[in-house]
């Protein structure tokens, strides 16, 4: 009797250790999990037209479309602080720099791979373009550029635009535009940067990548 119950317990333990999945896989959906219930097999359901999520009410047209009536707005819809520009720089480097390049010259890594080159931000047309134009391009796309609306929320778009404006100012500036008390700092940085790396006419450290291979080839 004793040995048979010991055997039973051992067997039960072994059996239990083999089926530990019922708590691991519960009858609930993880984000983007497959569903057998819906015809399109998606557990993530598309929004019903006209739904407004909490915190997403967008009645301020200028702030959320970049337009007043049909015209692009020319001023930022909220005051831009240093923190906004820094946030804009970070978002620009994530979402825009792959094509537009870190300085906005339209020479990002993806362009070097063969994507159609966007115009530089430093051409007169874009220097003159109102901020609402940039907002419209980020929101709806332009030419080869797709919409970034799903990746960059509206207020971050304005911050990115503020940083684009900063880039536009930076590329056309000379040392004389820098406040007198900051010039020594910039000069010291330039000298140490040039001294540490190769002379400026040497090929860049990260040359353009070779042209993309033909279709079907794997790298």
């Amino acid at each position: 009797m004793k040995s048979s119950s010991a055997l039973f317990i051992t067997g039960l333990t072994l059996a239990a250790s083999g089926c530990r999945q019922d708590m691991h896989n519960q009858p609930k959906y993880k984000p983007l999990a497959e569903s057998q219930f819906f015809a399109d097999h998606r557990s993530a359901r598309p929004q019903i037209a006209g739904t407004v999520a909490r915190g997403h009410l967008r009645i301020d047209a200028a702030r959320y479309t970049g337009k007043m009536g049909d015209a692009d707005i020319t001023a930022f819809p909220f005051p831009i602080t240093r923190a906004d520009i820094e946030r804009g720089q970070q978002r620009f480097n994530i979402y825009c720099s792959p094509c537009h390049g870190r300085v906005g010259d339209g020479n990002g890594q993806v362009v070097r791979r063969g994507f159609r080159q966007p115009p530089s931000y430093h051409i007169q047309r874009l220097k003159d373009a109102p901020v609402g134009h940039f907002f419209d391009v980020i929101t709806n796309g332009y030419g080869s550029m797709p919409s970034y609306a799903s990746r960059v929320p509206p207020d971050d778009r304005w911050r990115v635009i503020a940083y684009v404006r900063a880039l536009q100012v930076s590329q056309g500036s000379t040392l004389n535009d820098v406040p007198a008390d900051q010039r020594d700092h910039i000069e010291a940085q330039t000298i140490s940067a040039n001294g540490a790396q190769q002379p400026t006419n040497a090929p860049p450290a990260n040359p353009a990548m070779p042209p993309q291979p033909g279709p079907g080839e794997r790298r």
């Binding site: 791979r113 063969g114 994507f115 990746r151």
Partner: peptide, 21 residues
Amino acid sequence: GLPATEVCMSCHSQIWANANI
């Protein structure tokens, strides 16, 4: 977050646009 197909196509509408993989 997993990228929507739209995100892949940001670049792959033009780059490797005919690649079998």
